[in-house]
């Protein structure tokens, strides 16, 4: 199974890449930078992990650079995980349009265009593929400073549900994994006190385990989840 993943250099994307490689998948991974951890995976898994340096704020060149030149139209894509994201955190009254537009390019516009290109490639190869978008608990529970970021993830949840309806007739599935707060770089700007207060709001009173999120994504990509589409699967330690 060929899986296209964005944001593979660190955090959830890196863990997911490792999980899928260990499951025997071939991973086409995209990130802006090459981390030492990713380099180790490339050394260990060789040609099963293909990596491209690409900045997703460049929405215009996705088709040519990623799909035509790198993956190639002749290569079937069985699954797509839209994981890369920017977190632009601030209170609404400080909102900066350039920062907002950049975050929307990376979190929304590029993922939407990539979904278009992935579905086209699935059609060409007659693949009943699986698409997973990584959403955030901030869509469902408010947090101070996360309104702009949460709005990008809310857009993805709406897009995913409609993707599921539009392409379900051809067996193409789309789901969101709604992740709670994990100990990754994405949440590194939060203070210990802020993190503890967030964790106390969960049923399990702890941070979300990155590997648990990665395993849930892996399940949604697999045939085991063949009857699941158009859903938001919360992996958030019970933030209810």
């Amino acid at each position: 199974m060929n899986v296209l993943i964005t944001g593979v250099s660190k955090g959830l994307g890196l863990k997911l890449t490792e999980v899928l490689l260990n499951n025997g998948c071939t991973v086409y991974g995209i990130s802006r930078s090459l981390s030492p951890e990713l380099e180790r995976l490339i050394t260990e898994f060789g040609s099963n992990l293909k990596w491209l340096r690409y900045d997703l704020s460049d929405t215009n060149n996705l088709k040519t650079e990623v799909f035509k030149h790198w993956i190639g139209l002749g290569t079937p894509i069985h699954a797509f995980v839209n994981n890369a994201a920017l977190a632009y955190d601030d209170v609404i009254t400080n909102m900066n349009l350039d920062a907002l537009e950049n975050m929307y390019a990376v979190n929304v516009f590029s993922p939407l265009m990539m979904t278009k290109l992935v579905i086209r490639q699935m059609l060409l190869h007659k693949i009943k593929g699986s698409i997973v978008h990584i959403s955030s608990i901030s869509v469902h529970t408010g947090y101070k400073g996360l309104s702009m970021y949460a709005s990008t993830k809310g857009a993805l949840e709406a897009f995913s549900k409609n993707t599921a309806r539009e392409w379900g007739a051809l067996g193409i599935r789309s789901n969101c994994v709604v992740a709670g707060f994990m100990e990754t770089e994405m949440s590194s700007t939060l203070s210990e006190d802020q993190k503890n207060r967030i964790y106390q709001r969960t049923s399990l009173k702890q941070q979300v385990d990155v590997e648990s999120v990665a395993n849930t994504i892996s399940f949604l990509l697999s045939d085991e989840s063949r009857s699941i589409t158009g859903q938001n699967i919360h992996v958030d330690c019970g933030t209810i």
Partner: peptide, 13 residues
């Protein structure tokens, strides 16, 4: 519309 989507993909290929 889904047939036309596949048609356009195959013509582009």
């Amino acid at each position: 519309s889904l047939d036309l989507a596949e048609l356009t993909v195959r013509i582009e290929a």
